[in-house]
Simulated assay, not measured.
Amino acid sequence: MMYLTIAVLCSVAVSVLLKVLRQKNIDIRQTIVAGYPVAFFLTWVLLKPEISEVSTLNDEWGIIIALGVLLPAVFILLGRAIEAVGMVATDAAQRLSLIIPIVAAFLLFGEVLTGMRIFGLALGFLALAALIYRSQPADVSKQTQLTPLWLFGVWAGYGIIDILFKQVAKHGTAFPLTLFVSFGLAGLLLFIYLLVTRVRWQGNALMAGLLLGALNMGNIYAYVRAHQVLSDSPSIVFTGMNVGVIAVATLIGVGVFKEPLNRMNILGLLLAIGCVAVLFLT
């Protein structure tokens, strides 16, 4: 359970870091671009991808390019969502992205959808609706109006990334190599974008990127190792990861950052936990 605990803490720590950076008006895009060389290096050291097999990627390059664009984009959306609605609802929406690959498996890949899974999916959509609910005053700001879009972007982005990784794995490409190449491409594309837009570089944003890259890779490595150690109980790992992140993020968001939660949001959190439990324990 040590690796699972580390994975949960690293995942929540990413959200905490992004929230703090937003509060200090630090350019998160620069933090993200500085984090990719760290994640790239740690992937090489910890997961030991077979670099010589890059030439065998072939048809998978389309998926890897999509990952190169989506990986930094979803981090930016994550920061926006945390700023708009807080880390509690944002992390819950991120965890509920598991709905997307399950729906895709049914609609695109011919898997059978059982009654219990339909019930779990229904709980997930109800949870999303409850999480984005905000009682709005008459003079609604533009940022408040965009709140559902940021949360939807986080939910959809992580769900699509999950599908892409699953498709690459089905084509026989090793996960470490895919991650290695995708990290490198993501960092390069975002760096080029920042150069083209002539961003004014911030030293503190770049330094924070070192921590972000380490936390991101720590989350991935610990999660992979948890699956290896608990290979006979994958549902425990998946459920523990998702429910654990929601629980810890709620404790920190409400206890430390004093994030407000209305009754509908609390109901959404409970529905999210129920959704995860139903989908991965049935």
Rank of each mutant, 00 (worst) to 15 (best):
E60K: 08
D232E: 14
W201I: 14
G110C: 08
K170Q: 13
I28Q: 13
L189S: 05
I82M: 07
L67N: 02
L230Y: 11
G184W: 03
I100D: 06
L98N: 15
G35W: 03
G124L: 04
Y221D: 14
E259C: 03
I161W: 01
A129V: 00
A186W: 02
M116K: 14
L267T: 10
R263K: 15
P234T: 11
A138R: 00
G253Y: 08
G244S: 03
C275P: 04
H227I: 04
G218N: 09
G213N: 09
Q30E: 12
L149A: 10
L190A: 08
G110N: 12
A222G: 12
G187P: 03
L21I: 06
S233T: 14
K142D: 14
S15K: 12
L164W: 09
F180I: 09
T239S: 13
L146N: 10
I100P: 08
V243Q: 03
L269F: 03
I76T: 12
V237C: 07
L206K: 04
A174E: 12
T5I: 15
T31R: 01
L188F: 11
G209S: 03
A34E: 06
V103W: 09
K48Y: 08
A169V: 07
Q145P: 01
N25P: 00
V54H: 01
A205L: 08
S11T: 14
K24C: 00
F109D: 02
L78I: 14
A130V: 01
V154F: 02
T90V: 07
T173Q: 11
A156S: 09
I100C: 05
S235I: 00
F75S: 09
L46R: 11
L190N: 10
